[in-house]
Design a protein around this nucleic acid. Structure first.
Lengths: 147, 147
DNA sequence: ATATATCATAGCGAATTAATATGTTTTGCA
DNA sequence: TGCAAAACATATTAATTCGCTATGATATAT
């Protein structure tokens, strides 16, 4: 699957929020954009999608920012990417050979819906909590290296 | 995963060749393009990719055409789509947050490589023989309906 | 009030994709 | 032997998507 820049930024940004989830106070877009080294204006668009998808809460105005809408273990990579990506799954109405509905249906059943399900399952099995844990493991390994 | 028009045409065209595999004689692009109701010129480009991928044999000149390079049960949807699609899998070098290599690595490990493997497995599990069988089942069911 | 933030929408340039166009070779066959 | 039918090759155009920028409006803590 081709994951767009928006999708990758969204995943990374959500991990940032997750790492601050226990803190309770909102995180600003600009702080995340600086940490990630990408444009603030572009990240705003990503967060608009995340909000529309119900994955983050926002507080406007001074001292405002974003936080996760629920705990990290209840947010999967599938939730995030399907809120952001326009065409993660194959549109069911795409036609291959209109004149041969049987061939059309066979490909739909055996290829397109199967691969979509595989993607959905793979992405649904990874939560923000899992990713956080992976990062924490790496970090502690890195500390060990210095000792 | 987004499957391109070329990819869908390629799958359908390969099924056509598979349905004629036992016949032994080559099938022309124009006959397939007419059956599928799409441009002959466009299909030619698809077949160029299929040939480059070693999936079909070609015979030039009058009475020429294409045939499968091996039996239908040895050709999978993965073979076909990876011969055609330019970016089916996520390029490993795409950067998310250069400044945070641990986050970068965690996403790569837990999301990108996982979903790529899921796609590869799903597509590899479907052969042209499987698709043919599905179509034949549909056809016989349709016949039953008329009796 | 004002600074700081989210929020909304429009626009643009580059890249990709879908499809045409125009030929050139190769080969069976009348 | 020449003609028709096919693959093969490459260039071009049109449409769409993508990555990103620009501009401004709205809300809110201090």
């Amino acid at each position: 699957m081709r994951i767009s820049a928006k999708g990758r930024y969204g995943l990374a940004a959500m991990v940032h929020l997750a790492l601050n989830y226990s803190g309770g106070n909102p995180i600003t877009i600009i702080s995340i954009s600086e940490k990630m080294g990408i444009s603030k204006i572009y990240l705003e668009q990503v967060f608009a999608l995340l909000k529309r998808g119900g994955l983050v809460l926002s507080l406007k105005g001074s001292q405002g920012g974003y936080q996760l809408a629920r705990e990290p273990k209840l947010i999967t990579a599938y939730h995030i990417l399907s809120a952001i990506e326009t065409s993660m799954m194959e549109p069911a109405d795409k036609t291959v050979a209109e004149t041969q509905p049987q061939l059309e249906d066979a490909l739909q059943e055996m290829v397109f819906t199967n691969v979509d399900k595989a993607i959905r399952d793979a992405l649904s099995s990874v939560t923000l909590a899992d990713i956080m844990q992976n990062i924490e493991t790496k970090t502690s390994e890195q500390l060990m290296y210095f000792i």
